[in-house]
Nucleic acid binder design. Structure first.
Length: 502
RNA sequence: GGCGCUAUGGUGCAACGGUUAGCACGCGGCCCUUUCAAGGCCGAAAUACGGGUUCGAUUCCCGUUAGCGCUACCA
């Protein structure tokens, strides 16, 4: 399929955030669904920045949105396009509507329309009973300017009576009464000496989706009620609407719309916390969508293979952080080790613990730590990791010789007065070993415990604190093997010296 | 207020007229055990309410209730 035919016949979707805030998890989920759909069908993904509101728009936030999408692995084939740079297109479309009678110049002050929940006094059609006009219809729409001399905005002239229908892939056939739809603004009134201002949302969306040949509009269900307006606009512009697919919203734990008070809603905050992007993606994909079966661990290629609009739910979903954390630990454990290593590398670079000799193919360091060693260490650590920064915090002693021993761990496992003596003895015995492997360390350590008249567990726990500084760490003898004989012995001796002082 | 959407355990999803209503997270217990995880096993926990339609409703229809959305010269 050539690119030209793709543009004409293939699936084309878009994600259209507004830079009035960061990338919200709800927006991220919408972006993800669009992306999965595009990739599933070999279509094109478009990124469009809807920045037509100069007042609220914060250009500096665009980069954060892009960063968030990139972290999520959501890429795009076209764009980013900026609506603020496409003003002429919208003005031309608005003029076309005025010319063909589907829009009018409105001279009313903006606040006259606010609320919109009444009939213009003095108009004939008064609401009695149901089904009658309930929204403002000013006299401007009939060519009688309400406020002569004022700068006009362009409003869409919603038909009186009748209904507007459209099909939604998720919600089914929808029908709205035209009398419930206000004469929405297409173009703001001009400021200063300009004739008209910027486009409003409805116009920009429709003009751009037409211009960009968007075939499927996948967006939040908060736009369901806006859709009839857009369908009307498509017709006025002589086009047929695309396929709509509205996806349910994401809520906080109390079922109200997800917001800051529910905790983090900025996708970049999850990156900062150290979640794996693929785990986050898997979690997000399952919010409002189901592949059908019971399997939940779906890697990105599985998501792409199985994604379909038919699997999208109509029920709003609560963002469940514990489940997100579960997904993260699952990915930490189940990912092929080579897929995990780059993430750990980034984390160690971030914390300044990274060593160049750990990159694949690099010459090993004098202490024989090379890429294979790094891989083994990560593999040993990962069942206990919850978030990426754990590799730099409680696992620090695996990657650096500069670590401190947790006072609480010492308190708990160095309580027995025999500990210093046992540690010293263990250091001697281990130093004398001629082979360094799990079983050798195991036998030697247990022998020391037995000779000292203590349970093996007591010594094992004490040694763990001595060599990694933490109460929590991987099984001791595996840890010893990964750390190496010299380090283990040195740290034991250091621990004895330290505890003697204390 | 008006209009619209939705309604399966606490949460996310299955079951798309006939199942002992399934899976997962979380929660409790047990096992494993060298700390902490992971893992294994077991358990508690749901069809919002009321009417219909039907031989039979979680499933279809109506109403109620609740939640959410839209109702801006925001997007």
């Amino acid at each position: 399929m050539t690119e030209t035919t793709n543009r004409l016949t293939g699936v084309r979707v878009r994600f259209a955030p507004s830079p009035t805030g960061y990338l919200h998890v709800g927006g991220a989920r919408t972006a993800l669904f669009n992306w999965l759909f595009a990739r599933r069908h070999g279509g094109a993904m478009i990124l469009r920045i809807e920045d037509t509101d100069a007042e609220r728009n914060k250009p500096e936030l665009v980069q954060g949105i892009i960063d968030g999408l990139q972290w999520l692995g959501v890429d795009w084939d076209e764009g980013p396009f900026y609506q603020s740079q496409r003003t002429e297109l919208y003005r031309a479309a608005a003029k076309k509507c005025v010319a063909n009678g589907s829009a009018f110049l409105c001279y009313c002050p903006a606040d006259k329309y606010a609320g919109g929940d009444y009939t213009e006094p003095g108009q004939d059609e008064e609401p009695k009973g149901g089904g009658l006009r309930r929204v403002t219809r000013c006299s401007c729409r009939d060519g009688k300017p309400s406020t002569p001399g004022a700068k006009p905005a362009v409003r869409f002239k919603v038909p009186i009576g009748g209904t507007t229908k459209f099909a939604d892939t998720v919600f089914g056939e929808r029908e709205f009464s035209n009398d419930e739809i206000e004469d929405f603004v297409l173009l703001r009134s001009g400021k200063g000496d300009e004739e008209f201002g910027q486009s409003m949302y409805q116009l920009g969306v429709v003009v751009d989706d037409m211009d960009m040949c968007v075939t499927h509009v996948i967006r939040g269900a908060d736009h369901l009620s806006n859709t009839p307006k857009q369908v009307l606009l498509y017709r006025a512009l002589g086009a047929s609407p695309p396929v709509f697919a509205h996806v349910p919203l994401i809520l906080g734990a109390d079922k109200s719309r997800l917001s800051k008070r529910h905790g983090a809603t900025d996708v970049n905050l999850y990156r900062a916390e150290g979640f794996l992007p693929e785990a986050f993606r898997n979690f997000l994909a399952l919010l409002g969508w189901s592949a059908g079966g019971d399997e939940e661990f779906l890697r990105t290629k599985d998501l792409i293979e199985r994604f379909s609009l038919e699997g999208v739910s109509r029920t709003n979903a609560v963002f469940d952080r514990p489940k997100l954390e579960w997904f993260n630990t699952q990915y930490l454990q189940r990912l092929p080790i080579d897929d995990l290593l780059p993430e750990v590398e980034n984390e160690l670079k971030r914390s300044g613990l990274w060593k160049p000799e750990w990159v694949a193919g690099a010459a090993p360091a004098p202490d024989e730590r090379d890429h294979a060693w790094f891989s083994r260490a990560v593999d040993l650590l990962r069942p206990r990791i919850r978030l990426l920064p754990d590799f730099s915090s409680w696992s620090r002693a695996f990657f650096s010789d500069e670590f401190t021993r947790d006072p609480a761990a010492k308190e708990k496992f160095w309580k027995d007065p025999k500990v210093p003596e046992l540690l010293a003895k263990t250091a001697d015995v281990l130093a004398a070993l001629t082979e360094w492997n799990h079983d050798a360390c195991d036998h030697a350590t247990r022998a020391v415990a037995e000779a000292g008249g203590v349970k093996a567990g007591l010594l094992i726990n004490a040694v763990r604190v001595a060599i990694v500084g933490q109460a929590v760490a991987p099984p001791l003898f595996d840890t010893m093997v990964v750390l190496g004989q010299q380090r283990v012995v040195r740290r034991l001796q250091d621990a004895v010296a330290g505890s003697a002082k204390a």
